[in-house]
């Protein structure tokens, strides 16, 4: 099997299966959550603000007063990582082509050099966050196999993508295949791991905002 064959496999069957498992997994997990339902709240809400859940969905991205100072590494590392990842996934021209082929939607891309920089930033942030996880007593206690797995499968696509672009270690076609395989690993792992927070974060934030909102508190 030559490198191009490997790449064709990575873009073909391997990608198909990864996407299928990913989509099935996400839908299944969403059912799993919503299927448990919740009892209607019979207490009269203080404010009739159906928007409180949606508000918290966005507002929770900003550190509450005093928190940034308590744990700057987590917040700053978290921001840099998530933004870097977001840029890399959604604003690199080749990636947009992927989304276009799957959804028909497309949007303007960023210059490659900027994407490259954001990937580096995201990787550095991931490294910082790992060091923090290993050093901070709370994080270390909370962390288990799942957390380190999530960290690894998130780093790999960034790393392989960076290495492919810069022609590091292996020749481009092989590295590009490895990049795709790492993305496929991520797709398969995501629905069934901590990485599912990519989706569930909106649900949990919504519930949080709703629970507080009914009591008249913007959370």
């Amino acid at each position: 099997m030559t490198h191009l064959d490997l790449l064709t496999f990575a873009r073909g069957s391997a990608l198909n299966w990864a996407l299928i498992i990913f989509v099935i997994g996400i839908v299944l997990r969403l059912f799993e959550i919503f299927g448990l339902s919740r009892k209607a709240d019979l207490a009269t809400p203080r404010t009739h603000s159906p928007g409180s859940g949606w508000r918290t969905m966005l507002a929770r991205s900003i550190p509450p007063p005093g928190m940034l100072k308590r744990d700057p590494v987590t917040y700053i590392g978290g921001y840099v990582f998530h933004l870097g990842l977001l840029f890399a996934i959604f604003f690199f021209a080749p990636h947009i082509e992927f989304f276009r082929s799957m959804t028909g939607l497309h949007w303007p891309n960023l210059p490659t050099a900027l994407v490259d920089a954001s990937v580096v930033a995201a990787m550095v942030a991931l490294g910082m966050l790992l060091a923090h996880r290993l050093n901070n007593p709370v994080k270390r206690m909370l962390s288990g196999f799942g957390d380190y797995l999530a960290w690894t499968v998130t780093l790999l696509p960034l790393l392989t993508g960076y290495m492919a672009y810069h022609h590091l270690l292996f020749e481009y076609t092989l590295m590009l295949s490895l990049h795709l395989f790492s993305v496929e690993l991520l797709l398969v792992v995501l629905p069934f791991s901590k990485l599912f927070h990519t989706f569930s974060v909106f649900i949990s934030r919504w519930y949080n905002g709703d629970i507080f909102g009914r009591k008249g508190v913007a959370s």
């Binding site: 873009r11 073909g12 299928i20 099935i24 992927f98 082929s101 799957m102």
Partner: peptide
């Protein structure tokens, strides 16, 4: 098709998976 596009995956495949 761009190199970054899937070779055979289609939106309907995703719909089926969903």
């Amino acid at each position: 098709q761009a190199l970054s596009m899937p070779v055979t995956a289609t939106p309907s495949m995703l719909a089926g998976a969903a």
